[in-house]
Amino acid sequence: MTAIDPGVELPATAENPPQVDNLDALESEAIHIFREVAGEFDRPVILFSGGKDSTVLVHLAHKAFRPAPVPFPLLHVDTGHNFPEVLAFRDDLVARDDLRLVVASVQDYIDDGRLSERPDGTRNPLQTTPLLDAIGENRFDAVFGGGRRDEERARAKERIFSLRNAFGQWDPRRQRPELWNLYNGKHRPGEHVRVFPLSNWTELDIWRYIQREKIELPEIYYAHRREVFQRDGMWLTSGPWGGPRDGEVVEEKTVRYRTVGDGSCTGAVESEAYTVDDVIAEVAASRLTERGATRADDRISEAAMEDRKREGYF
C-alpha cells in the first residue's frame, strides 16, 4: 500500500467529501434565500441602513445574481438623525454599485404633521409608519432585512420568511414551519413577507465574513476619537437629536460603534479596535449582543422589540 503524503490535498470523492466551513455554509444559505425570493415574488426590496448587516446583504445579493445587476432596489428609512458618515457611505455605495435607492423620510412626516416628535427625542419608533407607507406605495411584496436571531429575543422567534398582515404587523402565531430549507412565501393581497437571510449568522460570523470578503463599512465601526457623554450606561454623541442634558459631561474618548441607527439612542463603546482583526478579537470576547450593549430603545422594556415588531417595525 502506498503511503499518502499528508501535505497533498486529495480530490473530493464520496469517501473524501469536500470540506465546507461555517462561513461557506452561511453564505450558501443566504444566496439560496435571495434566489428563492427572486423566483417567488414580484417586487422585492432590500432594507438598507448603511450598517454592517445590510451592507453584507447587498454583498450577498451581488453574489447571488452576478454577472447580472442586483434586481432589487434598496429602501432606507431615514430618521433625520443618522450619523453623517453612514449617510455618506450609503450614497457612495449606491453610486458605485449602480443601485436604485428609495428613501422614506421620518422628517417629512414630522414636517407635515403625520408624526410628532417623542418627548425623549428618539425617532427609532417613528420609522414604522414611513416604512409601511413605502412598502404599500411601491407594492413591495418581499422585504429583505438584516435581522439576526442572536441580536434579541423577539428576533430569535422569527422565521426566515416572516409573514406580515395587511397592516404590516407580525403575529408569532402565524409563523410557518421551515423544514428542510423549504420556504413558504404565500400571502394574500396587501400582505407582504419579511425575509431574513442572515437569521442564522452571529455578530462574529458577520465580522469574519467582512474580513474574508474585504467588505467596506462606515468608519464609525472602527475606533476613532469622538466627543461623547454618558447616559444610562452608554456613550452618546451630540447632534441634531439633542444632548447633552444638564449634568451630562462631554468627554473625548476613543470609541467605536457596534451598530448604527438613530443617533439619539445608539451608543458607542470604548474600544481600541482599529482594524477588522481587532474588532473580531473584541467581539469574540464580548458577552453582550450589540443591541443589548448599545441600543437604548431596546431597554425600554423586556418586550420592547417584540411590541414594535407587532406594530410593523423591522
Rank of each mutant, 00 (worst) to 15 (best):
R123M: 03
H81A: 06
E158T: 10
A156N: 15
T128K: 07
E152A: 01
R153G: 04
F83K: 01
G80I: 06
D97H: 06
A142Y: 02
P84Q: 01
Q127N: 10
L131R: 03
R96W: 03
D91K: 12
D141R: 13
P84F: 00
E117F: 05
K157T: 11
H81V: 07
N124F: 08
R148T: 10
E85V: 09
A142S: 12
V143Q: 08
G113L: 02
F89H: 02
D141H: 13
E117H: 12
D92Y: 05
G136C: 09
G121F: 04
D92P: 05
A134S: 14
G146A: 12
F144W: 13
G113T: 02
F83I: 02
T79L: 11
L87D: 14
P130V: 06
D92W: 09
L99F: 01
T79F: 10
V103P: 07
D150T: 15
R96Y: 04
D112E: 15
R100P: 05
R148N: 04
R100M: 07
I110W: 00
Y109N: 05
D97V: 07
L126W: 01
G145T: 15
N138G: 11
L87I: 09
V102K: 00
T122Y: 10
D98A: 15
D98K: 14
A88K: 10
D120Y: 06
A134G: 04
S105M: 03
P84G: 01
D91C: 06
T128A: 12
A104S: 12
G121P: 04
L131S: 05
E85G: 08
N82L: 10
P125E: 07
D91Y: 07
T79M: 15
D133H: 07
N138I: 08
S116Q: 11
G136N: 11
L101Y: 04
